[in-house]
Design a protein around this nucleic acid. Structure first.
Lengths: 116, 116
DNA sequence: TTGACATGACACCAAAAGGTGTCATATGGT
DNA sequence: ACCATATGACACCTTTTGGTGTCATGTCAA
């Protein structure tokens, strides 16, 4: 589960793969179709799709001689939910409380030097 | 801006950096303090912090001879918002509409072969 | 069965990533 | 001034990563 998050983030770390994901928002694609839309070798595309599949961001279904890649909302949602861990921090009201109550180390430093 | 998203995702692609981010949720840290909490060389930690800073996920403030790394909610929020692009897909009601209306390629394939 | 067509499976490569160690520099306190 | 502390800046190394090309395999249709 946690390992899956690692794979998901790894998959999202490449701009080509993010572009493929966004393309898959509009239509499911076979490997060859992805090759046609992106200027890449079939081997390269296959690798990207494998990594996206390992990251649980797409599902691949073999239909005849084609392998259709399809966006996987579950995986994307999992990654999006990872950010909930930090959500307090961009909730402004909680934000100030957070810094006031918990941030002992920086408070001390701020007392010593006021140029923050 | 788009480049920044690339940097953010790159930064998030490494588990050590994600761990550092989560630690920074609890307290701001100097480089040395990060070194003490994670079993890494100072040089390695510095690289990670630089990448996190490039990804706009932390801000670094020089205080005296220390460089304090602090979580940057703005950057995290930006990345989280990137996922809004896909949010239709995990909204179940919109989801079915999406597939029914737009997914022509797979529809055709499904008509040819019913083992989906 | 035979030939396209869509892939799978490798071997190979250059560049980037993650780490380590060493030497130089700046800041604070005594 | 002087020394310990916290970094900055490199040079160097190994493993991954993103890509390419080639050959084998499976599937559909004539």
């Amino acid at each position: 589960m946690n390992q899956s998050v690692q794979h998901s983030f790894r998959a999202l770390g490449d701009s080509t793969r993010r572009a493929i994901l966004m393309q898959l928002c509009e239509e499911d694609l076979s490997i060859t179709e992805v090759v046609e839309k992106f200027e890449l070798t079939r081997t390269a595309v296959r690798k990207h799709l494998t990594i996206l599949e390992e990251g649980n961001l797409i599902t691949v279904t073999a239909i005849g001689k084609e392998r259709i890649s399809k966006l996987n909302p579950e995986g994307l949602k999992s990654v999006a939910e990872w950010f909930d861990f930090f959500s307090h921090f961009w909730d402004s009201s909680l934000n100030s409380l957070k810094y006031a109550a918990e941030n002992e180390a920086l408070k001390q430093l701020n007392e010593r030097s006021k140029n923050d």
